[in-house]
Design a protein around this nucleic acid. Structure first.
Lengths: 330, 330
DNA sequence: AAACTGATTGAAACTGGTTTCAAAAAAATG
DNA sequence: CATTTTTTTGAAACCAGTTTCAATCAGTTT
């Protein structure tokens, strides 16, 4: 690999001058600039980013922490973030935690060692108290997942509202026995708490008591959805509608329901969350709560880049709207 | 951030000794080792990877080039690769080309500047002649996509066989009018050529002439599938079966077919490719050619890592089996 | 013509690690 | 006990850039 010294030698200047050309500093004679450019071209020179980082403390890399990239919700999020990054000359490092606390911390260390300038977290495994100290090493933006304290910018949808609207819709369809089946365990705050809150509130307003048997948490995949359906089938007192935390769970639920001879929405109404491509493909098409995934990713990327330009940006909460999409499954 | 010098000072040794402890070199007194370890702990020291890279020429990073991460085929591939990488202490850099030649080259430059030790390419946008020179800078492994010359290891499935078996299956179901609808444009070699070849061969063996109207290329998404269906509907002479290059295209096709009142497989048989989760969810469940995505990713990761350990590994072709999964759509 | 200004340039220091080299100390050998 | 070998250690060089600082140079201003 050609180094800056090779270029300097070939161009007959010092490496300082070459560095100035690379970084587009003013006050360089057009003459020398051209020589340097030619030399760079001739040698196929690409500056070594490790060296730049070491001195300059700039990584031009952002890291995106996701639980699982195979989950379309997160792959769309990563997609949007990556686009913003690339447009601004940043590389995107994809960090998959697989819901492992250790792994999450390992990825946070990228900040410490300046391998990433900033991190966008789309999920949180550790306590916020564990993660918070890392903001000292570089900007962190939360996107999708959030916490109660505003130590960092958060891009989120109103999960409470989403769930509330969804459950209310089910109630309006005449359902009184509504199961609730979502991802995270109940936490003290954040996404899952708000969802839970929305569910409870909608029931409460309609004067419906919560049946704890119908609350199923820690469900994520299509497979989980199938399992949940089996659980529901075994109940003496079965719900007539299910609010799910993702279109995947809803898909599994629907498959298993149909297999068991139940009609959707006749015997069981199913409501998804996210509005992924799969929602439209299902038969019957899935009613769902649409999250503006792309917008969220883009916003998160933009905020992070803004923070990198301007370190003192005040952290704020950016709330994007959710929307109930009624199709055929409710 | 604490540096190695801070640690050395606190432990009362030279930074050389600290470095030796970090890298687990022999010949260090248990005594000093302990002091260093304590100091590292106390300062929360994490070595700066840029510095290590700069000197050591090791990035402990692998890059994965994909056309689009939102395509589940690629996200599963990335997932498998990332797992192998993480287990071996490597970070995974996700590089999305969006089918842009420039972007692909930008990502190949990661090798040149030692930001990545090696690259796994799951798609190829530029000519192989353009890409090939980069192997000088670090190992490249092709996974999924391939080229005719064996300059680098290739992990692939027998695309010819997959398509051949699939089309033959359709013929065995009594179809004589079989459309072919897949991703890449016809290239001189590689995946798409072999698929095309398998299609032609299967028809030929059954004494069926190819109808060029029924050959549709450059289709990738669900949306593309819907569009194709519209095209098919407008034809006077319509195919009775479609072989598709991905489960997404097949999904779009199926949706539009049902919307148009066609029964699947009665009026139109549809065969997918990949066997993604969506295949099982569709109604009727999609018959498809299963690719061992996870295996492919894992193998690609392992080969790349092996090449990093042992630079002189002879490039070879690793062919994994495809399998016809017959469900309800054919 | 002397003094001042700003543009242009390069030498040297610096980033935070690893590696080389040599020396000192300890252990093993004859 | 002298000699050899092996451990243990640190100083200094090195990786490839960026940044600081000072010097040179040309053009103005007095």
């Amino acid at each position: 690999m050609a180094t800056i010294i090779d270029v300097a030698r070939l161009a007959g200047v010092s490496k300082t001058t070459v560095s100035r050309v690379i970084n587009n500093y003013p006050h360089i004679s057009a003459d020398k600039k051209k020589q340097v450019l030619n030399a760079m071209e001739e040698l196929g020179f690409t500056p070594n980013l490790s060296a730049r980082r070491l001195r300059g403390q700039v990584a031009t890399t952002i890291a995106v922490v996701v639980p699982k990239i195979v989950n379309p919700f997160f792959s769309y999020l990563v997609d949007a973030i990556e686009q913003v990054g690339y447009k601004n000359g940043y590389q995107t490092l994809i960090c998959q935690t697989n819901e492992d606390k250790e792994k999450e911390l390992a990825y946070l260390n990228l900040l410490k060692t300046k391998q990433a300038d900033g991190i966008i977290m789309t999920s949180i495994e550790n306590d916020w108290e564990t993660i918070k100290p890392y903001i000292e090493y570089g900007p962190i933006v939360l996107c999708n997942e959030y916490v109660s304290r505003v130590d960092v910018p958060m891009i989120r949808v109103d999960q409470y509202q989403g769930t509330y609207v969804g459950v209310k819709h089910l109630i309006e369809q005449g359902h009184r026995k509504i199961a609730y089946c979502t991802g995270g365990l109940f936490t003290e705050f954040g996404k899952d708490k708000d969802r839970n809150h929305g569910y409870q509130r909608a029931l409460e307003e309609a004067g419906i008591a919560v049946n704890p048997n119908w609350i199923l948490v820690d469900k994520h995949t299509i497979e989980d959805g199938k399992l949940v359906m089996r659980q529901l089938l075994e109940m003496k007192d079965r719900p007539t509608a299910v609010f799910t935390g993702s279109d995947e769970i809803a898909s599994g639920l629907m498959m298993a329901a149909k297999q068991a001879g139940l009609s959707v929405p006749g015997d069981l109404a199913i409501l998804g969350f996210d509005d992924q491509p799969i929602a439209e493909v299902l038969e019957p098409a899935l009613s769902t709560i649409r999250q503006p995934i792309e917008q969220m990713g883009r916003k998160a990327g933009e905020i992070l880049l803004a923070m990198l330009e301007q370190a003192d940006l005040e952290p704020a909460v950016y709330e994007l709207p959710v929307e109930l999409i009624v199709r055929k499954s409710t």
